[in-house]
């Protein structure tokens, strides 16, 4: 195995080792509202970034775990959430608003002013 394929294999493992946050996505005239579940992730551990029109959500779970605790059953088996979405051009990624409460992250992604719908009158000629 060459160095390069080794690297790819590791990346793939890392990609699989993240949890996929469950989302609700709603579109209105003014923009999109995306709600993502990130239970166990404190505010300071949430990362939202946009690069090349790709919106990425990441978060790391921080639980209060007593010393000497051994895990006996785990339905949430890794500590990292990650999910990415491609944004469409009419969205204004510089004006994304984010808030978080009780493990739920809410993002509002507005549409750029010029992209908001206009009703076009049909002229009868």
């Amino acid at each position: 195995m060459t160095e390069l394929t080794k690297q790819t294999a590791t990346d793939k493992t890392n990609e699989l080792a993240t949890l996929r946050p469950l989302v609700t996505i709603v579109e209105e005239d003014s923009g999109f509202t995306l709600t993502a579940e990130l239970p166990g992730v404190p505010k300071e551990n949430v990362q939202v970034h946009v690069e090349n029109n790709v919106l990425t959500l990441e978060g790391e779970i921080r639980l209060s775990i007593p010393e000497q605790m051994e895990s006996t059953h785990a339905e949430v088996s890794t500590a990292k959430y990650k999910r990415a979405f491609t944004l469409s051009r009419e969205l204004d990624s510089t004006k994304i608003e984010a808030s978080q409460r009780d493990g739920v992250l809410t993002l509002h992604i507005p549409k750029a002013e010029h992209a908001q719908p206009r009703k076009i009158e049909v002229q009868v000629g």
Partner: peptide, 19 residues
């Protein structure tokens, strides 16, 4: 989703119930 843990003196239950 639920995670369970065990220590010599306690049983720890974590339920992931956001929102």
């Amino acid at each position: 989703a639920i995670n369970l843990g065990s220590t010599p003196s306690s049983v720890e239950v974590y339920a992931f119930v956001p929102g």
